[in-house]
């Protein structure tokens, strides 16, 4: 049962990582690319890390996984916000369409 749950989590996370990179390739400008890569990428990696916790399953492992996901959720929006602000000038405007 644990193995099946972990396998499904791992597969879902890997598919989300792939979707993030496909968005990075296919989206038209930097702001939409940021939107695809930050959200889907963080969700994919978090699911894979949770699967590692489900498989290994002792307290120290869960603590490290919670810390990793917490840092990910805390830092990804800040980083994306700073890149977006840095690249917002007269040549790079979000598209309104």
């Amino acid at each position: 049962m644990t193995e099946i749950a972990a396998g499904l989590l791992v597969l879902t996370g890997a598919v989300f990582s792939l979707i993030a990179s496909i968005g990075l390739i296919r989206m038209p400008d930097i702001f939409t690319r940021m939107h695809a890569s930050t959200k889907a990428g963080v969700l994919g990696s978090s699911l894979i890390l949770i699967a590692a916790g489900v498989v290994i399953g002792d307290g120290g492992t869960w603590a490290r996984i919670v810390v990793a996901i917490f840092f990910l959720l805390l830092t990804a929006p800040i980083g994306a916000h700073m890149i977006g602000r840095a690249s917002l000038d007269e040549h790079h405007r979000p598209r309104h369409k």
Binding site: L24, I30, G44, S45, V55
Partner: peptide, 28 residues
């Protein structure tokens, strides 16, 4: 642009974190 490369590097870091989690399961 430079910003595209930074966004891509950011996503690469997050993907490699997922890879580390996979390898932790794989090698126990």
């Amino acid at each position: 642009s430079f910003g595209d490369r930074v966004v891509s590097l950011d996503m690469l870091t997050v993907s490699i974190m997922g890879f580390c989690g996979l390898f932790a399961i794989f090698s126990d």
